[in-house]
Design a protein around this nucleic acid. Structure first.
Length: 340
DNA sequence: AACATTTGACCGTC
DNA sequence: GACGGTCAAATGTT
């Protein structure tokens, strides 16, 4: 039974996490903790394998490299077409967001920022034979304020042909514009209209309200669907200020998540927006029972979130059983120590 | 009119 | 040459 195996893996992960939590309060060695973390990750890997066998979309992600290889966009000579044609491959993507979406297929994740689409491409998936049809349609977006404010944030929205309800959103760069997305202005307090939202603000506000409700529904049913993986990112402060996911979840509202973070002094390592992983060690946290991408990507962040439960078939997975795990007070997801 | 999206072409990398 | 990423003209929307 895959479900049973899955549950076992998750339970094991929880147990090891709890163990790790204890070790954090003990003078145990750093290596001991690393071993525990590896075990946790192993459990997740196994769980993912099971999910993959179940036909769930939890594909393995290719490795992403660091931002240090990021090509710098030359804005000093914007008119020259040959200025920036550097192939980026997968390098430098700072965040990835996988979304089971029952919401708009065109904009599965309204992250509160204003994006402008500048291209679309059918691309092959990783591990995809060359002679097979493209697996993804990728939309390329950049910040609307790129020219006006020189904001370099860009994102890709990748839609799987296999399952159009699954999106993968990659973020790159930080928002240097004055968009005060960051959920404080958009999701958390939709009544607080950003002065910088300009003409979009009113319309967007309504959209955000709707999506906020959707997100809340998603969270309330799924538990939280937030997954972040950070590994050895020197520039993580560049990442999370633009943290794209609506943090407005029930858990967040109830304070359980944030408070847990705060209580455990994790927030000290977080950026003002959400997270600014400060250690050079591998950082990882995951709150998604169903959208865990692979954990093998290096030097990348992966954020995964269901935006709607109304249309998020997760194969045959019995979510209720996961809910028990999710909302088990002792479950490590509630404990930021899990995030290492 | 201003802005956003679409889409084919182009370019750099592999 | 294939592929991924970007450009920019054409088109659509507000």
């Amino acid at each position: 039974m895959e479900q049973e195996a899955l549950l076992n893996e998750l339970k094991e992960g929880r147990a090891v996490t709890n163990l790790l939590m204890k070790h954090l309060h003990l003078p145990s060695s750093h290596q001991t903790r690393l071993v525990l973390i590896e075990k946790i990750l192993g459990s997740y890997e196994n769980a993912l394998s099971i999910l993959n066998c179940n036909g769930l979309v939890v594909e393995t992600k290719p490795s992403l490299s660091t931002m240090e290889s990021l090509p710098s966009i030359d804005h000093s000579s914007p008119d020259k077409r040959d200025v920036f044609k550097k192939r980026k491959t997968s390098s430098g993507w700072t965040e990835q967001l996988r979304v089971c979406s029952g919401t708009s297929l065109d904009n599965p994740v309204d992250d509160g920022f204003c994006w402008r689409k500048y291209g679309q491409k059918a691309i092959l998936g990783s591990n995809f034979p060359r002679n097979v049809k493209p697996e993804y349609i990728v939309g390329y977006y950049r910040c609307t304020h790129r020219h006006s404010q020189g904001c370099l944030a860009i994102k890709q929205v990748q839609k799987s042909n296999d399952d159009p309800t699954i999106f993968e959103v990659k973020y790159k760069g930080r928002h240097t514009c004055n968009q005060t997305s960051h959920f404080a202005a958009t999701y958390v307090s939709v009544s607080t209209e950003s002065e910088n939202e300009g003409n979009y603000s009113r319309k967007r506000q309504h959209q955000l309200e709707v999506k906020q409700k959707q997100a809340q529904q998603a969270f309330s049913s799924f538990g939280s669907g937030l997954k972040v993986k950070t590994e050895d990112l020197d520039n993580r402060e560049d990442i999370f200020p633009s943290f794209p996911f609506p943090v407005e979840s029930e858990q967040v509202k109830n304070g359980s998540f944030v408070e847990a973070l705060m209580e455990n002094d994790i927030m000290g390592n977080l950026s003002p927006a959400f997270i600014s992983p400060a250690t050079s060690e591998s950082n990882y946290f995951s709150m998604s029972p169903c959208h865990m991408g692979s954990f093998e990507s290096d030097l990348t962040d992966i954020i995964s979130a269901p935006t709607s439960v109304t249309n998020s078939p997760i194969g045959d997975l019995d979510i209720s059983s996961l809910d028990k795990l999710e909302f088990d007070p002792s479950f490590a997801f509630d404990n930021p120590e899990f995030f290492y």
